[in-house]
Design a protein around this nucleic acid. Structure first.
Lengths: 191, 191
DNA sequence: TGGCAAACGGAACCTGGTTCCGTATCTTTG
DNA sequence: CAAAGATACGGAACCAGGTTCCGTTTGCCA
């Protein structure tokens, strides 16, 4: 195991294009949402469509690559909030709102997140793998402290919150954050 | 006004085809969801695609026509529940769960409902026009009785509940009803 | 510098929605 | 009952956007 140079060392132009694509995709996502046409991203990056598919076989791979940083920030914020906030429930509430902020500022991301299209498996998987444990930890802590009623399934909570964020950036009359607040309040154990 | 025969009396075959399309669409919706391919519906009804577009210019028109009955049932259930249930909050809770049952048994309907595609304007409009007032009435009653905290926007509530139902029929691990229960509980005025 | 594997570009392809018009059918009227 | 006009039909053609494929180019190493 642990061979010294298992990396087949990629070509320089390939690396360059990959970066260019990430830049272009990030820009295209903010401008036109995560559903922006593949050709547009390619054009913006100055490459052919084939190059996109070579580096990012599915749209989800591209989305993941673009937002990985922010997802990891959410992951790290979990334990941090748990330590910083006066109670686990407060930490959970803040963490969820952080997640909501993340989703609602990425046009269409919440929608993509819930798509059952096979191409979004990667995205789904990443959220489950990285965010779910954090959510579960916060949930467990809040349950243990008696602040919320036991039996809340982390996946249901994450998915539900994600769903509530769908379309939030389009309809000014729909207040996703308000709905999420309601959910957080509903989690509270009855006084 | 009130001319005697303002109806331009449609041709018999047209009427027949429209019915056939409604049948075919209803069957196709349960089998493959509301996103089923237009051509499939046409084939099932034994008509050409042109005939679909003639009778139902947008997919939303077809969805509306198929589910109009059940939507109206929801409309009528509002006041009925308000009269039958011990409290307005109970009536609101039951009514929302009824709405959830409706949405989660129609593959993909919840998703279509939140789409901002112009083609779904009709669907959106119908829900807003017919269901929103009912929701508002229940909400007002529950607010007036002091059971829930004031300030809940009916549109946000309806839309949020709709969003929570998205994908509920696909992922067995996601419990949409549980999330909706949480929202209903969160609506409660603090004891 | 020559040779080759890696990567590229973008035309071609596929799927699914939408339009359009020549044809068939119904209805009315003489 | 037949003819004429209106109405509706069917499905080929079109369009958009994702995906694939292969001839060509480029970078890397010997």
């Amino acid at each position: 195991m642990g061979s010294d140079t298992p990396a087949p060392r990629k070509r320089a132009d390939a690396e360059r294009n990959k970066l260019a694509l990430l830049d272009a995709a990030a820009a295209a996502f903010v401008e036109s949402g995560v559903d922006v046409a593949v050709r547009d991203i390619a054009a913006r990056a100055g490459v052919g469509v084939g190059t996109i598919y070579r580096h990012f076989p599915t749209r989800a791979d591209l989305i993941v690559a673009v937002y990985l940083h922010q997802i990891e920030a959410c992951v790290e914020a979990g334990p941090a909030l748990l330590a910083a906030r006066p109670s686990p429930h407060a930490a959970l509430a803040d963490w969820i709102m952080m997640f909501v902020d993340f989703l609602t500022t990425k046009h269409g991301l919440a929608g993509a997140l819930q798509s059952d299209d096979a191409a979004f498996q990667t995205l789904h998987g990443l959220f489950l793998e990285r965010l779910l444990p954090v959510c579960a930890q916060l949930l467990d802590a809040a349950t243990a402290s008696g602040e919320i009623t036991p039996g809340m399934d982390p996946l249901t909570l994450m998915r539900g919150v994600g769903n509530l964020c769908i379309g939030a950036e389009n309809d000014p009359h729909y207040h996703a954050r308000h709905m999420v607040q309601l959910v957080i309040k509903g989690l509270r154990a009855d006084s």
